[in-house]
Simulated scan of single mutants.
Amino acid sequence: MDEAKTDVLAFTPFPHPTGQKIWSNTPIERLNKEIKRRADVVEIFPTPAAFLRLATAVVIEAHDEWQVTRRYLSEVSMAELRKVIAAKQAAAEPVAEQRQIA
């Protein structure tokens, strides 16, 4: 667990609302509920491939919706993220230069 600490806490340097969205798995949970809801309507699938086609159709529909109408992170949030990433890169550059010198 100690080795994975940096990966698990990677969202913490980001501003609060954005970091919370990065950390959350709510969109995946919603997608899984939608697949389950539609599968419950059908009740019995003749083959596993039939279920796979239904689940694929739901995922494609959700993808199209997110491509066109919805945004998980707004333009303002993305601008804040770019600032955080730029600051992290600027802070990492002196360390990389010191390693090259040594």
Rank of each mutant, 00 (worst) to 15 (best):
residue 1 M to V: 14
residue 1 M to C: 03
residue 4 A to Y: 15
residue 5 K to M: 09
residue 9 L to G: 06
residue 10 A to T: 12
residue 11 F to P: 01
residue 11 F to K: 05
residue 12 T to I: 13
residue 12 T to W: 08
residue 13 P to M: 00
residue 15 P to W: 02
residue 21 K to E: 09
residue 24 S to W: 09
residue 27 P to T: 08
residue 28 I to D: 13
residue 29 E to P: 03
residue 29 E to A: 13
residue 31 L to G: 05
residue 31 L to F: 04
residue 34 E to M: 02
residue 35 I to H: 00
residue 43 E to N: 01
residue 45 F to W: 08
residue 46 P to A: 04
residue 47 T to W: 12
residue 48 P to S: 02
residue 48 P to N: 00
residue 49 A to R: 09
residue 50 A to Q: 11
residue 50 A to F: 06
residue 52 L to W: 09
residue 52 L to H: 12
residue 52 L to V: 11
residue 52 L to Q: 15
residue 53 R to Q: 06
residue 54 L to I: 05
residue 62 A to D: 05
residue 63 H to F: 10
residue 63 H to W: 03
residue 64 D to H: 09
residue 64 D to S: 07
residue 68 V to C: 13
residue 70 R to H: 10
residue 72 Y to E: 05
residue 72 Y to I: 00
residue 73 L to T: 05
residue 74 S to W: 01
residue 76 V to T: 09
residue 77 S to P: 14
residue 77 S to Q: 15
residue 78 M to F: 11
residue 79 A to S: 11
residue 82 R to F: 05
residue 85 I to Y: 02
residue 85 I to Q: 14
residue 85 I to N: 07
residue 86 A to S: 13
residue 88 K to L: 14
residue 89 Q to K: 10
residue 91 A to P: 03
residue 91 A to R: 10
residue 93 E to R: 07
residue 93 E to D: 04
residue 95 V to Y: 02
residue 96 A to H: 10
residue 97 E to G: 04
residue 98 Q to N: 06
residue 98 Q to M: 04
residue 99 R to N: 00
